[in-house]
Write a protein that binds this DNA or RNA. Structure first.
Lengths: 348, 348
DNA sequence: CTGAAAGCGCTTACAG
DNA sequence: CTGAAAGCGCTTACAG
């Protein structure tokens, strides 16, 4: 592979001059520029990003550590992150933690070893010594979706409180009184916040949230299945199951179907995080939609601000309730439901 | 950030010795090793991967360029690729081409600039000069899922021919005679092969495949919607729509629902690529499942073989038909359908 | 077993 | 406007 030396030789100039034209440095004569460019062309030269990074101490790369790529919410988040980063001249390397703290740390470490310019993370758990050290060491960092309380790091996230309140109102109106939730890990902010918001909303309606109606999930389908089975085995099963993410809703659906029960007649179901398939499930699922692409973009902008020396900004965007049929009261059939253009886009 | 010099100073040895213990070089005295390790510990030293890469001319990084991360099939593929790569000591950088050739080339170029050790690609189109040059330049390369005919690069993929044949048999048995397909881009191998296999199978049953029954999609939901609308507008609409991927099936479902039609009573639907949600759609969708995680693993192994000087192997694994209810003849209700453990795992 | 030194491919003050 | 030279943080023959 041709190096800058080869180009210099071909063009009959020094490597310094080649470097200058490559970096659009102003003080290069038009003539020199032309010959260098010609040499670059004939050799098919491409600068070695590794060498450049070593020299300039910047990689123009962002690290993104998410808790689960297979979760459509995170896939969509990752996609918008990459898009915005590309628009700002950065690449992104994704690390999938699979909801496993050790794997999360592995990726953070690898990313740091590669000297990424900044780190975007949706932490798998409530605290990680490595994360603390990283922030303390001055690595530009921004939390997306989930965050670690007490750390002085900007947070970009959706607030689901109002939407959850609206959901409970919806459920209450439909006559449901025994509401249960499949929670995410209590160690994650989204895991605990959604339960808290749910509990608060229930309180406003004078509804209890007994421990038996708080199932401990881990944001994965299998846990949704397991918790739902436990709910159904209760002497007095809930009338509604609210899954704190779309994967656990999938598991809940599996469990309900396995028992030969029907939604919403036998039990109602709602989910946090909306996905395109929810329109076509049997029945269509009522869900809370996050402004995911906006979150991804805002997170990148905050991180790049931080990297480039501007003050980064925390951002909180509202989530919203999308009512469909899974909680009862069949909505009058719409002649033509608004189409969605991508599998993860929310509908309605 | 501490450098190897700092460690050397702290340990009272030369950087060469530090480097040796870091790389497990045999000729280091136990005493030296111990002091160096201690120094590493107290300084919290982590080797700079950028510098190491520049020096050793290897990055221990694989590039993966896929056509669409939002497509669950590719998400799952990416995940298994990363897993296998990690097991073999490599990182992977994913580039999402979004089915756009220019974006694909952008990622390939960026990856090459970063001097990745090898490239895994599922090409967006039939030929790319850049891809040709890359292979010719000797960059280790392997195609996954899709490939570019005529290039001497190992291919790891699933063969859907038999499964498609089985699907047609299934449809024919159910009495369907007017079968249509929403094809992927003809420039992709998977796009054209699936049509070819479908046509061949129809021929065996003496069934025609008129041009009007071949809709040109692009593997995205919107195209599935558009093509399905065209099908439904035909004087004689098809009885079955076979979508060449799961996203176009989603679009087809959107279009069918928008017309107030029902599956399978008014029109049957089947899809290539299985996803967990297909069990819960109304009705559950008959699909062709690929052994996706196996493909990802095999692709990484082939690429790493190539990188490390062993002869790489092309691999073809069979896809299989998963019959559900979307083509008619409701399957007798199963008391307990086999659960799936991840959202993209195929069921049944 | 150990260290001094060269060199990977760049960028960038410094001098002219 | 241009070039010679230093240096980013490593690894690795070479000599001892």
């Amino acid at each position: 592979m041709a190096s800058i030396k080869d180009v210099a030789a071909e063009a009959g100039v020094s490597v310094a001059t080649v470097s200058r034209v490559l970096n659009d440095h102003p003080s290069v004569s038009p003539a020199a520029r032309a010959t260098v460019l010609a040499a670059v062309e004939t050799l098919g030269y491409r600068p070695n990003a590794v060498a450049r990074s070593l020299r300039t101490d910047q990689t123009r790369t962002l690290g993104l550590v998410i808790s689960d790529v297979l979760n459509p919410y995170f896939t969509e988040l990752a996609r918008s992150v990459e898009e915005e980063a590309r628009a700002l001249g950065y690449s992104v390397i994704i690390g999938n933690a699979d909801e496993r703290p050790e794997l999360q740390d592995h990726h953070v470490r690898t990313l740091l070893d590669r000297r990424i310019d900044g780190l975007l993370v949706s932490p798998t758990d409530g605290s990680s010594p490595l994360m603390l050290d990283t922030a303390r060491a001055g690595t530009p960092m921004v939390f997306v979706d989930r965050w670690i309380p007490g750390m002085d790091v900007p947070v970009v996230r959706a607030d689901g409180r109002t939407a959850i309140h609206n959901l409970v109102t919806h459920l209450h109106t439909l006559g449901h009184r025994r509401l249960a939730i499949i929670a995410g890990p209590a160690a994650t902010t989204t895991g605990s916040e959604r339960v808290a918001a749910f509990r608060e909303a229930l309180q406003e309606y004078g509804l209890p949230l007994p421990d038996a109606y708080i199932g401990q999930g881990d944001f994965q389908a299998a846990s949704g299945r397991r918790v739902t089975e436990e709910f159904l085995d209760l002497p007095e099963p809930p009338e509604v199951v609210f899954a704190a993410d779309n994967l656990m809703a999938l598991g809940a659906l599996d469990a309900i179907r396995a028992r030969g029960l029907r939604v919403p007649d036998d039990i109602a179901l709602a989910a946090f995080d909306d996905i395109a398939w929810f329109v076509h499930t049997d029945p269509p699922i009522t869900a809370i939609a996050q402004p995911t692409p906006e979150l991804g973009r805002a997170a990148v902008r905050a991180l790049v601000d931080r990297i480039e020396g501007r003050p980064p900004q925390s951002v909180t965007l509202p989530a919203r309730l999308v009512v469909r049929q899974s909680c009862g009261e069949p909505v009058p059939p719409q002649p033509s439901p608004p189409p969605h253009s991508s599998p993860q886009r929310s509908n309605t």
